[in-house]
Design a protein around this nucleic acid. Structure first.
Length: 195
DNA sequence: TGTCCGATTGGT
DNA sequence: CCAATCGGACAG
């Protein structure tokens, strides 16, 4: 079951936690590439120094963060990587960064796009890596998450754990953000998931 | 227009 | 630990 718009149009921290254990799907019409979401980070908009919209910044790059919850915000960093975010709330420019997946469908294709072999976990255990594995680039910026090309769905019964165990720790790579660098807004699933 | 730097990754 | 690599934010 594909998540509906209302799932995204809620409090950002709630969405960040509840995205854990869901399945991110990229469907190019020929095949499905998917992975179980195991790590996220919440970015809290105007009052969050680590957020691209801090202080009400509204530049070309971050336009899609001002879309209603349920859209994608994809940006380019370090001259070579893309990061995929889920826009949250009804109107506030907040989002959740998807940081890691457990590959499910289309592992072969992911290996081709990543040009690495070996441990499937290395395919999508980082925000830049998972974008490369799923073929997500800036053309997905602003895309609807209730459409056909990219969306998030409930996991199959088989890989839905009895109870999710979540750990909250500080976000990474934002040491420039002062106190906000210590806010526990990074969420990780550490239950055993059947694969 | 010029400069500085990044919500990362991969190799030393 | 450090380089790669270039678009974006902001100062001038």
């Amino acid at each position: 079951m594909k998540l509906i718009r209302d799932f995204y149009q809620r409090d950002t921290i709630e969405v960040a936690e509840e995205l854990l254990g869901k399945v991110l799907v990229r469907d190019d019409g020929r095949q499905r590439l998917s992975g179980l979401i195991i790590e996220t980070e919440a970015y809290l908009g105007l009052d969050d120094p680590a957020c691209h919209t801090f202080g009400g910044r509204r530049t070309q790059r971050v336009q899609s963060m001002y879309l209603p919850g349920g859209h994608a915000y994809v940006y380019f960093v370090y001259g070579m990587h893309y990061c995929f975010n889920v826009v949250t709330t009804e109107t506030a420019p907040e989002a959740v960064l998807v940081r890691a997946l457990l590959p499910l469908e289309g592992v072969r294709t992911m290996q081709n796009w990543r040009r690495v072999k070996g441990d499937p976990e290395d395919l999508t255990n980082g925000p830049g890596k998972l974008c490369q594995a799923l073929g997500i680039d800036r053309s997905f910026d602003g895309a609807s998450l209730v459409g056909e090309q990219i969306y998030i769905e409930e996991p199959s019964q088989a890989r839905r754990p009895e109870k999710l165990r979540i750990e909250a720790t500080p976000r990474v790579g934002i040491n420039y953000a002062g106190d906000a660098a210590f806010w526990p807004l990074r969420f990780r699933l550490f239950s055993e998931i059947p694969t």
